[in-house]
Design a protein around this nucleic acid. Structure first.
Ligand code: MN
Ligand code: MN
Ligand code: MN
Ligand code: MN
Lengths: 221, 221
DNA sequence: ATACTGACTTTGATTAGTCAAAGTCAAGGT
DNA sequence: ACCTTGACTTTGACTAATCAAAGTCAGTAT
């Protein structure tokens, strides 16, 4: 069985690979930064993963998961996200703190326990942050979401997902009512002021910077 | 923070130390066997733990926990036993399988999650096998139990604890109705036949070997 | 007393994961 | 064409945990 270090690398490669259009190579520097190790450490690890056929490695260019590596990554992600939801729904932890807890538990939960958790939660499809939960077969239904930084004005929208795990940011969103499921519209957007003006039902308008708005993903309501 | 390997050693020393009257030294060989490592590996580890003031070590004699080592061991044991009970009570796992699950989870559960689990379960005092759960301050209320191999005949007894984690043995006990809380009496005991004859309410008498009887701890009902 | 035996310790080696520092490469600027 | 630079790789070293095999010790048996 893969060590938790290997699981963390594979999961991270998967997460880095997503925004890059899917089949692009993840640059080593990006991976090293994300894993909080020196570039040399990442190179060594990736050569081992390539040896085990979990990644394809092109020196000085980057790394990509193989099918086998992707399956492993998706299983780790499934554990991570189901654990997060369980901690929120059953043990009542705050959505801002469950990511760090799940980071450890994702390596300790057995398949048997995980399937019990899944059943207990009624086979949910998304975690507390709106991230999709892969199936036990390692499938993810791709979401087609836009961020508040890019979608149309004056359309009825619903928050679907938060693309950031920062506890402080998540706490801010919670205080502001910006959590998955909530309906809103964009009243205006000003590129020069770098800001977006939101309107939630029964609330006064709220202004966000573009960087923050980009982390809030929505779907048409 | 201590590695999971260190946590496992400390917990095991504590467990070995208990039957030995409390303050006796645990022989290295016993510890090595229990940890499933070679004697040399145990020696090396114990020297490191002694350096960290978690154990007192007398070469060729044995090892004993210091106060600090005992506190750490009790915290690991608390995590282990609360996790076991949670898996049984909330996720519905069988009491024969939770020990192995908890063996991993005991190293991954944070204090915060653990206290939520404790509260969710209503601050229980024993785990599914009747083993006492140390408090968050690291206190255990000592049980004064006798085993079925040694207690009086024809007295009303109640099963309080099973001193074995073997899945197959636990499954047998469950099939036989020999679980904590159950009332019974000992009808007879024959040292030559190495057997004990039990009577449970509404059941036909049941015969156990002395080795099995010794693992079932009871209190007066 | 001497020798044997089994338990324990030491030594030397291995594996996983890591870093610091030195080396290399590809691009872009001159 | 030649340098500079920043990103990446290599090298050498370290720590934690482990084993195999050789060495040592203490208690028992002769
Ligand atoms: Mn992790
Ligand atoms: Mn999440
Ligand atoms: Mn353990
Ligand atoms: Mn138990």
């Amino acid at each position: 069985m893969p060590s938790s270090t290997v699981e963390n690398y594979l999961k991270q490669i998967y997460l880095e690979q997503q925004p890059l259009g899917g089949s692009d190579l993840v640059p080593m520097g990006r991976l090293a930064t994300a894993m909080a190790v020196t570039p040399g450490t990442a190179t060594t690890m990736i050569k081992a993963l390539a040896e085990a056929n979990l990644v394809t490695y092109e020196p000085r260019t980057g790394v990509r998961l193989t099918k086998a590596g992707e399956q492993l990554a998706l299983h780790v992600l499934r554990r991570h996200r189901l654990v997060e939801l369980f901690l929120v729904k059953v043990l009542g932890l705050d959505w801002s703190e469950v990511h760090d807890e799940a980071e450890h538990l994702e390596h300790a939960v057995s398949d048997k326990v995980l399937e019990r958790i899944d059943a207990y939660l009624g086979h949910p499809s998304v975690d507390p942050h709106g991230d999709p939960i892969p199936t036990s077969k390692g499938k993810v239904t791709p979401q087609k979401l836009q961020s508040l930084a890019e979608c149309d004005l004056n359309q009825p929208l619903r928050i679907a997902r938060i693309a950031d795990q920062e506890p402080a940011f998540l706490q801010f969103l919670h205080r502001s009512g910006l959590i998955p499921g909530v309906a809103l519209t964009i009243q205006s957007r000003d590129p020069h002021a770098d800001s977006v003006l939101l309107k939630l039902a029964n609330k006064s308008p709220l202004s966000l910077g573009t960087a923050a708005a980009a982390k809030i993903l929505v779907e048409p309501a």
